[in-house]
Measured scan of single mutants.
Amino acid sequence: MVYKIRDKETGKVYEVTIDEETNEITVYDVKTGKPVKTVNMTIEELKEAGYEVEPV
């Protein structure tokens, strides 16, 4: 599923895909559409880390 996340401190917005089964999150560069990095976190962990998470 695709989400937009926003860093509450910097205001930067990222587009991510989240595999609900493995909790693998792939972060994409919004301008190029290319993957930047992959992390292993849940949506709740993202929120605790200071991100706003919205489904696209």
Results as ranks from 00 to 15, higher is better:
K47S: 09
K31A: 14
V27L: 15
T32P: 01
E48I: 10
V13W: 14
G50L: 04
Y14F: 10
T22R: 14
E45V: 05
Y3D: 02
Y3L: 09
T38K: 13
N40G: 06
Y14M: 03
D7M: 03
K31I: 15
K34M: 13
K47F: 10
T17L: 11
N40A: 12
V27C: 15
Y28F: 09
I25A: 04
T26K: 09
Y14I: 03
E24P: 01
E45D: 12
E24W: 14
V36C: 15
K34T: 09
K31N: 14
V36F: 09
M1S: 08
E52Q: 06
E52M: 06
I5D: 00
Y28R: 11
K47A: 10
M1N: 11
V27K: 01
I5Y: 05
V30F: 10
M1Y: 11
E20C: 13
M41Q: 04
V36L: 15
E21A: 13
E48V: 08
T32K: 01
G33A: 05
I18H: 09
E48Q: 13
K8G: 04
K34H: 11
D29F: 02
T42N: 06
V56R: 08
M1R: 14
T17V: 11
I5K: 00
Y3S: 05
I43Y: 04
Y51H: 03
I5W: 04
V30A: 11
G50W: 04
E52C: 04
E24Q: 14
E44S: 10
E45L: 06
Y28I: 11
K47L: 14
G33F: 04
E48F: 08
P35W: 12
I25Q: 01
I43Q: 02
D29W: 04
L46A: 02
V16M: 13
T38V: 11
T38E: 04
I25G: 02
D29S: 05
V30G: 09
D7H: 15
E48G: 10
V56M: 13
V39N: 03
P55Y: 09
E48N: 14
V13C: 10
M41E: 01
K31T: 13
Y3N: 04
V27E: 03
G11A: 02
K47E: 12
N23I: 05
V53N: 01
D19C: 09
K31C: 15
G33K: 08
R6D: 00
K12L: 13
K47I: 12
E9T: 14
I5N: 00
R6I: 15
R6W: 11
E9R: 14
E44P: 06
G11Q: 03
L46Y: 04
V16L: 09
V36R: 03
E45N: 07
E44R: 09
Y3G: 05
L46T: 00
E52P: 02
N23E: 06
V36A: 04
K47Q: 11
V16R: 00
D19W: 06
D7R: 01
E24M: 15
K4W: 14
K34A: 10
D19M: 05
G11T: 00
E24R: 12
V56N: 08
Y3T: 09
I25N: 00
P35M: 11
G11E: 02
M1F: 11
N23W: 07
G33H: 09
K8A: 06
V16C: 13
V56D: 07
E9K: 15
T17G: 04
E9N: 12
T32Y: 04
K4P: 02
N40T: 12
E54C: 14
E21G: 09
V27H: 04
T42D: 04
E9C: 15
K34C: 14
E48D: 11
V27Y: 14
L46M: 07
V36G: 04
V16S: 01
V2T: 11
N23G: 13
T17E: 06
E15P: 04
D19L: 05
I18D: 00
V53G: 02
I5C: 08
T22S: 12
E44C: 08
E54D: 07
E45F: 06
Y28A: 03
K31E: 15
V39H: 05
D29A: 02
D29K: 01
T42L: 03
T26L: 06
T17C: 09
M1D: 09
V16D: 00
K31L: 15
V36N: 03
K37T: 11
V30K: 08
K37E: 06
E24C: 13
E44N: 12
D19N: 15
T42Q: 02
K34Y: 11
V27G: 04
E44V: 09
T42G: 06
K37Q: 08
V53Y: 04
V13H: 05
E52F: 06
K4F: 14
V39L: 15
K12M: 14
T38F: 09
G50M: 06
T32M: 03
I43S: 02
K31Q: 14
T42I: 01
A49Y: 10
P55W: 09
E24H: 11
V56H: 09
T10Q: 01
K31Y: 14
V13Y: 10
E15K: 10
V39F: 15
V13M: 07
K47C: 09
P55G: 09
V36D: 03
E9V: 14
T26W: 06
V2Q: 13
G11R: 02
P35D: 03
V2E: 06
T22W: 06
I18K: 02
E15C: 15
I43P: 02
P55H: 08
V2C: 15
K34L: 13
E44F: 08
M1C: 13
E45P: 00
G50F: 05
N40Y: 15
K31S: 13
G11D: 03
E21F: 11
D29L: 02
I18C: 05
N23Y: 05
Y28K: 08
T26E: 02
M1Q: 13
E20Y: 12
T22E: 05
L46C: 05
Y51V: 02
G50A: 05
V56F: 10
M41A: 08
T26A: 03
E24I: 14
P55F: 12
T10V: 00
Y28C: 07
E45K: 08
V2I: 14
T42A: 03
